[in-house]
Design a protein around this nucleic acid. Structure first.
Length: 196
DNA sequence: ACCGGGATGTTCT
DNA sequence: GAACATCCCGGTG
């Protein structure tokens, strides 16, 4: 039994939403996975955020309504998926970095032939986007309305009381901010969180 | 096990 | 023209 998250869950400050997303379930057609690692990004005072220098064609959905997907293309071959947070005009998003696969193993493996084991199907931001078939067409999709069959659900598993906290990965600015959150001791975390 | 580099093209300066 | 919220493979030890 589970229920889809509503607008109110997402329309809160980014740094509140990010840890609350841990242990929620991301669903796409034929597949599902538990969110076990995320990173918070916000525009106003976060030099690591795509929104830091103001709106552009790429990042405009970060400035829009909470609960939509922000999907961007990077390194010439990878897609990464964020959940938009906070209020209209206040840019914020949470990057989904790792999932524990729950359903649709065969489908994910088909999309990610390089994964040797189940826990490698979605243990990275670009890996999970590929495993879930997320790409350009999903940028701006409304999770609350389950556009394209993509939504976030609560199956009754609460977020960890003490999530692992660390700095974000792959940035050249904002590297000091401890805005990476993970469920401790799960195999799917993309990289170990120092100090826990 | 660990490390280094190449892939590949959009986005913004 | 540089940077990029990454991943994978092949080298070495």
């Amino acid at each position: 039994m589970s229920r889809r998250l509503g607008r109110g869950f997402f329309a809160r400050p980014t740094l509140e939403v990010a840890p609350d997303l841990l242990n929620k379930v991301l669903v796409a057609p034929g597949v599902a996975g538990r969110i076990v690692e995320v990173e918070a990004y916000r525009g106003s005072d976060d030099p690591g955020s795509h929104a830091y220098r103001g709106p552009t064609p790429r990042n405009e959905v970060m400035f829009g309504t909470a609960g939509h997907l922000y999907v961007y293309f990077t390194y010439g071959m990878h897609w990464c998926a964020n959940v938009v947070t906070d209020g209209p005009g206040t840019p914020g998003a949470v990057l989904l970095r790792a999932l524990t696969p729950l359903r649709g193993f065969a489908r994910m493996r088909q999309r990610r032939p390089a994964a040797m084991r189940d826990h490698e199907l979605a243990n990275g931001p670009a890996k999970l986007a590929q495993a879930f078939g997320l790409g350009k067409s999903h940028d701006g999709a409304d999770l609350v309305r389950a556009c394209h069959g993509v939504s976030v659900r609560d199956d009754g598993t609460p977020p960890p009381e003490r999530p692992a906290v660390g700095t974000r990965i792959g940035l050249s600015q904002g590297t000091d901010l401890p805005w990476r959150f993970a469920v401790s001791e799960v195999a799917e975390v993309s990289r170990p969180v120092p100090g826990r």
